[in-house]
Write a protein that binds this DNA or RNA. Structure first.
Length: 414
RNA sequence: GGAGAGAUGGCUGAGUGGUCGAAAGCGGCACCCUGCUAAGGUGUUAUACGAGUUUUUCGUAUCGAGGGUUCGAAUCCCUCUCUCUCCGCCA
């Protein structure tokens, strides 16, 4: 959520900024809603003050046994107009909030301007991929199956068998270990979130169709960013000892509405996938440095796994709803002959903090924190990358050094 | 699933219709005293929105959430959510 006072006072700036991400802000509509709400609030409060005063007088009269008749009429009139005004005010407030909650975050100053993914910048690359082309993971092994999963659940699910299930588990184990080494506190969290939590991180109300809704108030989490960021919803936290850093491994559930026909083969785009997420809740002054740090942390996992990758910076037009600045880590997939997203690290500034009311106190002043989130990494996609980038002509898959102890083996027979 | 109890400020906890945004204690902050340490004293210490001023301020709302009764609700009534205890079931 963007501060409505900020929009009011910097409307041209905001308009221009949001335009760069392809969002056309109805500034006139906003100003009207905002003005309406404030003027209703003012007149309502005048009435309430009057009523409070009269009620006190009423009490005095009662106490001294005097007649309250004269006040009765006046109070009754005020009550009626308060009820009327209250309804109008609440309506105006709801409308303004709805309007505000639909607006994406402002784009950070350093984010490159561009229309779509074509304008994203490559920041850096690892060394050249050793394997330029390979069969895809479904061709490599029958132990990764989407057919069986289709019987169990439907399309866009997978069943992993034996060594491949173990490989995914080992990847998760490695990622969690690395994250905790970097000071992220490991958390185990619910895989179901309520509406308030999903509003806090920005999935609701606008992107409900991307979620699996399991009952009126419950949704499956699309990422651990939701529970981790919401750990401190509605709190004023202490940041004097540094940022709060959390990590969790969770399955992620996405309906993938709107991606029909895209990435239909294999594990690349699933309704359910495993991910290790990292989140920081931090002093606003430090958030951009923290984004670099988080990105390099996610990057370090790719290095440890010896996977070829590139890091890109998303341009304004390709940014997610809550993000002001985002780095994507893309891993080389030989079967596709291109880099594919395996992690996304974002600085959300105070956008989520406003929605989730996460604040901190500094020198007696209360401010919104900044929140950051990143994948470190998406385990399902990491599995594909390991399999395809280590597939040997002999038919074996070499296991990366870092996973050999965990897997208790050096290679997998397909 | 059955029965009961409860939800108040950073924490503990008082408050059953007006003088309550709310006692007291703890914690925090500021100052004082004390020759390091320890202890003591005084004061201060919720949040949001709006108006004004940009130094001082004022108004309104908020005691789990929402509704109701009342001139007036932390306090009474209803609904919901959550927590705790006991029983049942259970990984």
């Amino acid at each position: 959520m963007i501060d409505s006072a900020y929009i009011r006072e910097n409307s041209d700036l905001v308009l221009e900024n949001l335009k760069s991400r392809g969002y056309k802000l109805d500034i006139k509509g906003f100003l009207a809603l905002d003005e309406n709400k404030r003027s209703l609030q003012q007149s309502l409060e005048v009435l309430q003050a009057k009523r409070n005063k009269l009620s006190k007088d009423y009490g005095e009269l009662k106490k001294t046994g005097k007649s309250t008749q004269a006040l009765d009429i006046e109070i009754n009139q005020i009550k009626t107009s308060i009820i009327d005004k209250e309804l109008k005010y609440k309506d105006a407030e709801v409308k303004l909030n709805l309007f505000l909650s639909d607006i994406p975050n402002l784009v950070a100053e350093t984010t490159p301007i561009g229309k779509d993914a074509n304008a994203n910048l490559v920041i850096r690359r690892s060394s050249e991929p050793k394997i330029k082309h390979s069969p895809d993971h479904l061709e490599i092994t029958s132990k990764i199956s989407t057919d069986i999963a289709a019987k169990l659940a439907g399309s866009r699910f997978a069943v992993l068998e034996n060594e491949f299930a173990a490989l995914q588990r080992a990847l998760i184990q490695l990622m969690l270990t690395e994250a905790t080494k970097k000071g992220y506190k490991e958390m185990y969290v619910p895989f179901i979130a309520n509406r308030d939590s999903l509003f806090g991180t920005g999935q609701l109300p606008k992107f409900e169709e991307d979620l699996f809704k399991i009952s009126e108030d419950y949704y499956l989490i699309p990422t651990a960013e939701v529970p981790l960021t919401n750990l401190h919803r509605d709190e004023i936290i202490d940041l004097s000892k540094g940022p709060l850093k959390y990590t969790a491994h969770t399955p992620c559930f996405r309906s993938e509405a709107g991606s029909y026909g895209k990435d239909t083969r294999g594990l690349i785009r699933q309704h359910q996938f495993e991910k290790v997420e990292i989140v920081q809740i931090i002093d606003p002054a430090d958030s951009f440095a923290a984004l670099e740090e988080m990105t390099s942390h996610a990057e370090s996992i790719l290095k440890i796994l010896d996977l070829p990758y590139q890091i890109i910076e998303l341009c304004s037009g390709d940014l997610g709803f809550s993000a002001a600045k985002t780095y994507d880590l893309e891993v080389w997939l030989p079967s596709q002959g291109k880099f594919r997203e395996i992690s996304s690290c974002s600085n959300c500034l105070d956008f989520q903090a406003r929605r989730a009311k996460i604040r901190y106190k500094q020198d007696g002043k209360i401010n919104f924190v900044h929140t950051l989130n990143g994948s470190a990494l998406a385990a399902g996609r990491a599995l594909i990358a390991v399999v395809e980038n280590n597939f040997q002509q002999s038919g074996k898959i070499n296991i990366p050094e870092a996973l050999r102890d965990l897997m208790k083996r050096d290679f997998i027979e397909t």
